[in-house]
Design a protein around this nucleic acid. Structure first.
Lengths: 84, 84
DNA sequence: CCTTTTTATGTTGCTTTCAGCATAAGGTTA
DNA sequence: TAACCTTATGCTGAAAGCAACATAAAAAGG
């Protein structure tokens, strides 16, 4: 189910949540890995847009994820993956 | 030269800068499009990690870019693109 | 070189997030 | 239902980003 497109903070949060669960971690465990607090993981996963960019990157590093930027295509096939 | 991997805020800034220049925009013009200020574009492009996630998303929307999360592979071929 | 454009940095007051803790809400399993 | 685990939310004081404007530094063009 990866990669995952994240066109909004909400989709980003949902994707991060999916990757976290794939790795069998709860928010508290991931927070410890990333040097963050459980409340922060919650905010990011629920799509709060006021969080620091650095916190998101701490999370990506802890989950061994990488971010890619691409020009938006007219609805690629993978778009549906992140709606449900 | 797209897509572009952004494994750090610095790489992210560099990538955004490349996409902006591809579109022939200066920071002030992009700021206007994104509803931000020129100083903010500068901070993001120089890799400042304290900026709000929402500001980055405003930028991606203005540049018509989308973000993708993928598990990190052992150095994909495109990794070199963002070093120089 | 010099001028102009573009980008980076600094200041101030206001607003917001953050850590840290507590606790509520939601979910799961027995 | 009850006990437990997980996630979301509320609070406070400390810390940081933010807009807005100014200006320095750098880059580009003539």
């Amino acid at each position: 189910m990866s990669p995952a497109i994240a066109r909004s903070t909400r989709q980003l949060g949902r994707s991060i949540q999916n990757f976290r669960r794939e790795r069998g971690l709860n928010q508290t465990q991931l927070a410890a890995l990333a040097g963050l607090r459980q409340e922060m993981i919650s905010k990011i996963e629920t799509g709060h847009d006021g969080v620091r960019l650095g916190a998101v990157y701490d999370l990506l590093a802890a989950l061994d994820l990488e971010m890619t930027l691409t020009p938006r295509t007219k609805s690629s096939s993978a778009d549906i993956e992140n709606i449900f």
